[in-house]
Design a protein around this nucleic acid. Structure first.
Lengths: 228, 228, 228, 228
DNA sequence: GATGAATGAGGATTCATTCAT
DNA sequence: TATGAATGAATCCTCATTCAT
């Protein structure tokens, strides 16, 4: 039917987290949906191979076995590809193993196991996730296109921490969360750049780092009554 | 392996002073040396502004106020600029505050203060150092051109650790050093991306992370006699 | 030669009503006719907004709220859209206010009023008409796709002039008509690019130009007997 | 010090008309200056052949026999090429036959001859001038990049008219000038799109149009006192 | 008839690098 | 040395058009 359907720029389906009132995600044929998946897979590969900055849209299209024009039918630009890929990975992560409320009552070491093991596994299966978490090599600033992903993860950490540290001032909470996230990313990189037992050893090491960092913080908060 | 090897970096004017038989540095290189410094300064700025991958040699030349041709008179390619800049920063670091033998007998907390404070200060003054430590956003692999810098720092950490942990197997030592370095880089990024008191708070936080991570390792090693 | 020939413009649905034997217009073309109108309206908008050369068929389809494929179901290419739009505008113009035979006996000033006022009004309502009269910015040559429109208008002017100047050689007649048309287009552009009273002032000015240009020509022809 | 030398974007040397304090026009080698001329010649050809909108920078480079990169060493974009070409043609025009003060005291018919003949000749030799005067086929607005050229010519006409019509209100003056310019462009197009005697005939015709349009305006102004 | 997918050549522009002066 | 010119492949992206559903 003539029904105009609102051009709806392209690609990105919607921010994660804003669950209500998703705008009808643009009528698309099944083939198109497949193409998008294909392109995002290709993008993941290329991002992993060359990093975000050096990745080229043509390379992504080539990797996906389509022409450059096709890519641009679904994504307005390189940035949008990264955003959409990040969103989808984030969704996938949340759906499969998200930080469940149950975990939040575990003791720290078990919490770390409960969170990190699947998260590491997820990153092993989706190495592009790590690439996107880092963003372009532009230092300092978090590039606009990665802000979603970054904030998404960061705020989840912050929430989790908040439940352990209800009395900590927000600024400090943010700092601890930021540091934790930062450390995690650093450790994850090491894990992913090793293989086999060494990889496991690094995973164990990361847990040590995080446990030792967070334990005093958490304990101190948990026992405000007795210990001097 | 870890042994840094200083790989005679650029193709340009072999650095005087590095090898045993110093040929009297020729006069006509004085200007050249100035040019090089100029170019490296410019490169540092551009790398900081845009990251390594996105930095263009033309932009570096422009920033240095010279023509592209001039740049290539001193460096065979973009990579060499990064390498040389990294080497020089590394030298500068070593010369000014390098991990002196004296420090190695300090207790851990003091050691961290002694090492991290000047290192952070150095990075504040030379933000390109952090950019180069990270290398391009290509994940996992350490790009060839940044291997020197990376290994240089890493092996110094490893040496230091070795003096605290003489009985630890080398593989583990490497792993701890790698992790430590990784954490440091991560923390440094946070420090550098904040300002004022918040920056200081992040620095303190980084020290906490590192102290808590390393303390048990070091303690355990230090007291092989008394513990049951 | 000037004779317009109405070149059976698009490849699509031969316009009913043009040839002698009217085949009863098939029902299923009703929708098609609407689509075409829709597309031509959209094309008019896009041509006005960006000019012919820079207009894209995708933009036209989008503006019409249909898919590119649909557009090509009715028009074989971009050119055909312009041609058909031009033809329709021309038809519309002819049907509503065409140079009626009656006008041809008015004195020049009244003739100009009689012709120009509605023509200007028509162009105000259909600004795409002016765009199409000019064609692409390719200078000199009249692009193939705009020849119809151009010749259509030109020959009408020429006919009108011929009735005033029966003894003028055809070459000169063509020249005067061409010049007149050219001036008209130029003036029209000015009119359309102004607003309100200024627009009216330009319209008046255009009439002055044309009147003063044509008056001596016409007068001289009208009084072949007396004047030296 | 390195003295940065101010990047000085590229290409365009400076606006015409601002004669004082020309910024030192960027050190350039002779070869470069030749290239620029070459490129502008090529651009003129391509603009004439295809019009501004459809002209491609690659086509210009090809026509000039250089690589696309070379073009961009001298011009930051297509627009700048048009601007510079326009400026140079304008300068060339002014230098050779500009409206000299002497002309301003001639009777109108002689003035028109004095101005139009060389101007037409100039346009015959530099057909790109006409293309640039028209600008892109975007209707109405005068595109930014052509404003200079347009205003340059328009204001010269306006000045000339002002000397004939000292008592006319400025708005009207502008209108008359605009109309005159518009007519001239229209006539010029016809002249240029014909050949030989026909071309001359069109030139004569244009003069008629302009003379007849302007004569009453000028006369009326010239004889406020004594008219019989 | 309608849709959205697909194409691939071509658009402007950049960039690492080399060359002539 | 130093410069600016030159390169050409590669960048992102667009567009007229065709195809499969």
């Amino acid at each position: 039917m003539p029904e105009p359907t609102k051009p709806q720029p392209t690609g990105a389906t919607g921010k994660p987290g804003s669950s209500a009132a998703k705008p009808p995600p643009r009528r698309r044929q099944a083939r198109g949906e497949r193409r998008i998946a294909q392109l995002l897979d290709a993008a993941a590969n290329v991002f992993c191979a060359t990093g975000y900055t050096a990745a080229s849209t043509n390379a992504i299209a080539r990797e996906a076995g389509v022409s450059p024009g096709t890519l641009y039918q679904f994504f307005p630009n390189k940035e949008a590809i990264a955003v959409e890929l990040g969103d989808r990975l984030m969704d996938r992560w949340r759906e499969s193993h998200g930080l469940t409320a149950a975990n939040l009552h575990l003791p720290l070491d078990q919490l770390l196991d409960a969170v990190l093991d699947p998260l590491i596994a997820f990153n092993e299966e989706n190495p592009a996730f790590a690439v996107l978490m880092h963003g372009p090599d532009t230092p300092g600033r978090i590039a606009q296109e990665f802000a979603n992903l970054h904030m998404g993860l960061l705020s989840r950490i912050e929430e989790a921490l908040a439940s352990y540290l209800p009395d900590t001032p927000p600024a400090e909470l943010t700092r601890i969360a930021t540091m934790t996230f930062s450390i995690f990313k650093a450790g994850l990189d090491q894990i992913l750049s090793h293989q086999g037992t060494e990889r496991q050893a690094y995973a164990a090491e990361l847990k040590k780092v995080m446990f030792r960092y967070l334990e005093p913080i958490v304990c101190e908060a948990e026992l405000p009554t007795g210990t001097p």
